[in-house]
């Protein structure tokens, strides 16, 4: 609204220059393409997962995924530490509308089912633990939005789910140290590529990650939407 024709014109010229520069630089993209074919070769031999990205995330770089989950946990911890004094029962987010209530009652199982589908098909199709967890958390967000003060989640249950799934993730790693002498390795039968029960340990790790991520995002949204009246 505030920008003029001149600024749009300048931005067009700048963007065309940037795109031309990108066209030049993308010619020299040999390093990443060789890495991609290398990963694809290894993935075809060692894990029976149809999606190479998930096998990189959970199998080759499982320790990095543990670090990411820890970073999420620490950020939620910091938010809860900072906002704990301002929490109350009052939901700032609620929107009173009977149509929305009925529709969200209908849509909630559908969205949760879709999230579960994304999670358990993580090694077959795009998606996985993080994305499916956030989809389930968005279903809970819709419930917070539609049901004003009738719907509230107990923080004890959220924290219990979060800590149990994190402990399960680490326990899986320790178990694989005991069995095959490698942290977060594969100790289950691999199965055939393209089937639901395949990929070895990848679906188990993704189930733990998804429970943790959905509990964390839900509690983050809940910390943000409840506020004490500031007099």
């Amino acid at each position: 609204m505030k920008f003029s024709i001149r600024s749009i014109f300048i931005s067009l010229i700048v963007s065309i220059m940037i795109v031309l520069l990108l066209q030049i630089f993308l010619q020299f993209d040999l390093v990443t393409s060789s890495a991609g074919s290398f990963v694809l070769n290894i993935n075809a031999n060692s894990t029976e997962s149809a999606n190479a990205v998930t096998s990189v995330v959970t199998y080759f770089r499982g320790f990095d995924t543990l670090g990411e989950v820890t970073i999420l946990f620490l950020s939620i911890f910091g938010i809860s530490l900072g906002l704990e004094g301002y929490r109350d029962k009052f939901n700032i987010f609620a929107y009173e509308n009977s149509l929305l209530k009925i529709a969200v009652d209908t849509l909630f199982p559908l969205i949760v089912l879709f999230g579960v589908y994304i999670i358990i098909h993580g090694h077959l199709s795009p998606g996985g633990g993080f994305q499916g967890g956030v989809i389930i958390a968005s279903a809970f967000l819709l419930m917070f939005l539609a049901k004003s003060n009738d719907f509230s989640l107990k923080h004890n249950i959220l924290e219990l789910a979060e800590s149990l799934s994190g402990a399960g993730f680490i326990l899986l790693g320790v178990l694989s140290i005991l069995i095959i002498n490698r942290f977060l390795g594969n100790f289950l039968p691999l199965g055939k590529i393209g089937e639901l029960f395949s990929g070895g340990v990848i679906p188990l790790i993704y189930i733990f990650v998804s429970i943790k991520v959905s509990a964390e995002i839900t509690s983050l949204v809940e910390y943000f939407i409840r506020i004490k009246d500031v007099k």
Binding site: I111, F114, I118, L124, S125, P126, G127, Q131, I135, S138
Partner: peptide, 11 residues
């Protein structure tokens, strides 16, 4: 398999 993205888009 690209169809999953469309559902997320509508959501």
């Amino acid at each position: 398999i690209y169809l999953d993205v469309t559902f997320v888009f509508a959501l």
